[in-house]
Structure formats: structure tokens, C-alpha cells
Design a protein around this nucleic acid. Structure first.
Length: 392
DNA sequence: ACCTCCCGCCATTCG
DNA sequence: CGAATGGCGGGAGGT
């Protein structure tokens, strides 16, 4: 039936596409698992907790795995590595990157990047399937499925950034480069779609930043993560105070170097963090999912933030703040213990703290760190449940 | 009208 | 063989 829900005051269709983006999903995912004590992740659990279809979990997980945040343990099971695993993953990417990056810039990555460049752990595969991504006319059989995997695409996408001189890369450019010699418009569009997916989750993680290219004005992305180079410089090369407390919060995906014109204040998607600060979001649903869990309205309420950088948290406010969007009720919403620890993020924040040569980036980084703090604090004092019921 | 990119069908691969 | 994975692109929401 699903007739009108009446409910006077509001319009039935509260559907918002943005709330369902991979970016927010990723943020929620991170919020759920990026905490201490987590070491195993069950896909079913994740899907339930986050209120999304399994399919979406695969997307997130595959992308995260490609930067080392997760590793597949077994069917349905992943091992949490955390952000601290990112630097090494990037280092490996860089290594393999300039390894086969001998000829030129990113334009022939299509010829350079291909499968067998995954991670060390899983080196068990035989090494057949030589290295020519381009189906050499005859059989485009089998193995080429893996070549098209999201995970690999993600890694190659990253390689573009860390090995290219270009700082800003548009998805079109990236897609073209990643496609190699294939010049099929359909393939192109598909590739771009995937890149959008990846870019969104990376943006939510603070690894990428979306912005317009100075001249062309084309939407492009800038890599904020490490360049892969293990340059272990000290932390604050330049303006430290910039990130100390800018007190003016800005969401990640937002345009920063808008020195050009903010008259229009064109702002990009600022899901990720800003979403968490949304006071109260009610998501109704045109229930009809093929999953039979109790569907109902999930209310999302966070306290009124005002700023993302709350160092410590008044944990007096137990529960009452939920973070799961979507039609499904998070299953494991039972008792939640309020453990208070969390100044551990400080350590982590220092561990993984990329440095940039660019002032603007430094600023973003500041937000990143601040944001991270709040994630951590938030996640930490939230329910610790999930851990207990992972394995089925 | 073009840019984004969610959604879920259905091919593959796994156990 | 059924379940777990995950390519792929139609087409709708967002500027």
C-alpha cells in the first residue's frame, strides 16, 4: 500500500539522495569501526548497523581495502587495520607506481597500470596473466574481471595523483588515463561513474578534496593524503596556528582555495562531517525493501555542534544520538556502555599526519585532524556493542 | 542541459 | 548448487 503517510506537517517524500551517498555511508562506517578495540568486521553486521544493502558495503569495503584500512580475512569477514595502515599502503602504491612509471606522465597509465600490483599480503597468486591490460584481440576472458575491480581502480586512481606532476585532476582526465587506449564513450562514462564513487569516499576520509580548477573551472580533485614518499618530516613545517583553532568550521569536501570568487560561494558537497552535525534528520522511507527488518523512521540527532573540534566530550549525554541514516533500524541497538577513553586519537593523529607544502592544504588538514578527533571521541563513547556479535 | 552517482539487476566466483 | 561478490549502466536527483 504505502499510501499517504498523512502526518500533516511534513511532505511524505523526505527522500534525499545525498543522505545515501557513499560518502556519508563511508563516514558512518568509519564512525562505527574506527575506534579502539575493533579488529574484526562482519559484512552482515555492517550492513545492518548502517542500514544499507549489502551491495553498498562491498563498495566501501573494497575501497577501504585498497588503502589498507581493511583486509579481507575470510568470507564475510574483514580485519580492521585503521588509518594507521594507510601510509604503508600508499608507500607500496608509490613504489609499484614509479616502478612501472618509467616512460612518462599519467597519460599512459593505461598501459602501465594493471592487475598484479595488489598488496603484499596476498602474493599467493600465480603470476600468469602477463601484463597487458588491453585484451589483445582474442580472448578477453576471465581474469580481466579483477582488472576491472573497484579496488584496483582505486589504487590506480591514487597512483595518478601520487605520481603525476599535476596537482588537480579531473575525473575525465583520470578516466581517460585509466582507460588507456580504450576510447569507447560508454566505457568512459562507466569509468567516470566509478571514479565518482571512489572520490566521494576519499573525500569523506579527507584524502581527497574536490575543487574547481583555477582556469578551466572544471571540477577536479586534489590528493590530500601522503604522496607516498616516506618523507618523515616533522609535523608542522609551517603555519601551525592555522590549524590550531581556526574555529571556523568547514566541511571537507568544501572548496577551500576559493580565493577567486566566493561571491557565489559555490560550495560542494559537504557531507562527511557536516552531516554529522545536522541537528536532526528524519528519514522516512517508502518501505519496500526486500529485506525484512523492522523498517521505521530513524531519527538522527546530534547535538548542536557549532564546531567540530570538541576535544573532550561531555559524556553526560548518553545515547540519544544516533548516526545511522536509512530505512532500517540498526539491529544491535541494545545496551550501550559508555566507556570513556579517547585521547588516543591524539597519538593517532600524530601518527598519520600528512604534511603539505601548500598553505591551503594545511588548513584543510587542520580540519581533518579536528574532525578526526570528533569522530574518535564520538565513536568511542558511543555504544561498543557491535564488537560482541560480529561472527555469526 | 549537464554533472553526479544511487540503485539494484544479474554475471561471476566462492564455499 | 546456493550464497557471497561485485561489474555495470540506466536513469533520477542536483546544480
Amino acid at each position: 500500500m504505502a499510501s499517504l503517510h498523512d502526518s500533516d506537517t511534513k511532505v511524505p517524500s523526505l527522500y534525499s539522495r545525498k543522505e545515501k551517498s557513499l560518502g556519508v555511508l563511508c563516514s558512518n562506517f568509519l564512525r562505527l569501526y574506527n575506534r579502539e578495540g575493533v579488529e574484526s568486521i562482519g559484512l552482515d553486521n555492517a550492513a545492518n548497523q548502517l542500514g544499507v544493502e549489502r551491495r553498498r558495503i562491498y563498495d566501501i569495503v573494497n575501497i577501504l581495502e585498497s588503502v589498507g584500512v581493511l583486509t579481507r580475512k575470510a568470507k564475510n569477514q574483514y580485519t580492521w587495520r585503521g588509518f594507521r595502515a594507510i601510509p604503508q599502503a600508499l608507500e607500496e602504491l608509490r613504489a609499484s607506481s614509479n616502478d612501472n612509471l618509467k616512460m612518462s606522465q599519467y597519460y599512459n597509465f593505461g598501459t602501465v597500470l594493471n592487475e598484479n600490483n595488489c598488496r603484499g599480503p596476498s602474493n599467493s597468486n600465480n603470476s600468469n596473466t602477463d601484463t597487458h591490460i588491453k585484451p589483445s584481440g582474442s580472448h578477453k576472458s576471465d581474469t580481466n574481471r579483477k582488472e576491472k575491480s573497484l579496488g584496483l581502480l582505486t589504487q590506480n586512481f591514487i597512483k595518478l595523483f601520487i605520481s603525476s606532476k599535476e596537482d588537480l585532476i579531473s575525473l575525465d582526465t583520470a578516466a581517460t588515463a585509466l582507460l588507456g587506449d580504450v576510447h569507447d564513450p560508454t566505457a568512459m562514462r562507466t569509468k567516470v561513474r566509478r571514479l565518482y564513487d571512489i572520490a566521494n569516499v576519499f573525500s569523506s576520509m579527507g584524502l581527497l578534496e574536490k575543487m574547481r580548477h583555477p582556469e578551466s573551472g572544471k571540477p577536479s580533485f586534489r590528493w590530500l593524503g601522503l604522496k607516498g614518499e616516506k618523507e618523515t618530516k616533522s609535523l608542522q613545517p609551517l603555519d601551525t596556528n592555522t590549524i590550531t583553532n581556526s574555529s571556523k568550521r568547514r566541511a571537507f569536501g568544501t572548496d577551500i582555495t576559493n580565493n577567486v570568487n566566493d561571491s557565489d560561494s559555490k560550495r560542494y558537497r559537504m557531507e562527511s562531517l557536516s552531516d554529522w552535525s545536522s541537528k536532526e534528520v528524519t528519514v522516512a522511507m517508502h518501505g519496500n525493501m526486500n529485506m525484512n527488518m523492522n523498517i521505521d523512521i530513524v531519527k538522527v540527532e546530534m547535538e548542536s555542534d557549532e564546531n567540530l573540534c570538541l576535544p573532550l566530550h561531555p559524556q553526560n549525554q548518553r545515547n540519544s544520538k544516533e548516526f545511522v541514516f536509512g530505512p532500517f533500524r540498526p539491529v544491535g541497538m541494545s545496551g550501550n556502555k559508555k566507556s570513556k577513553e579517547g585521547q588516543d586519537w591524539e597519538k593517532l593523529a600524530h601518527t598519520y599526519r600528512p604534511q603539505y607544502h601548500n598553505k591551503a592544504l594545511g588548513d584543510v588538514l587542520g580540519h581533518y585532524v579536528e574532525a578526526w578527533k570528533s569522530w574518535y571521541v564520538e565513536a568511542t563513547e558511543k555504544k561498543h556493542v557491535q564488537q560482541q556479535q560480529q561472527v555469526q
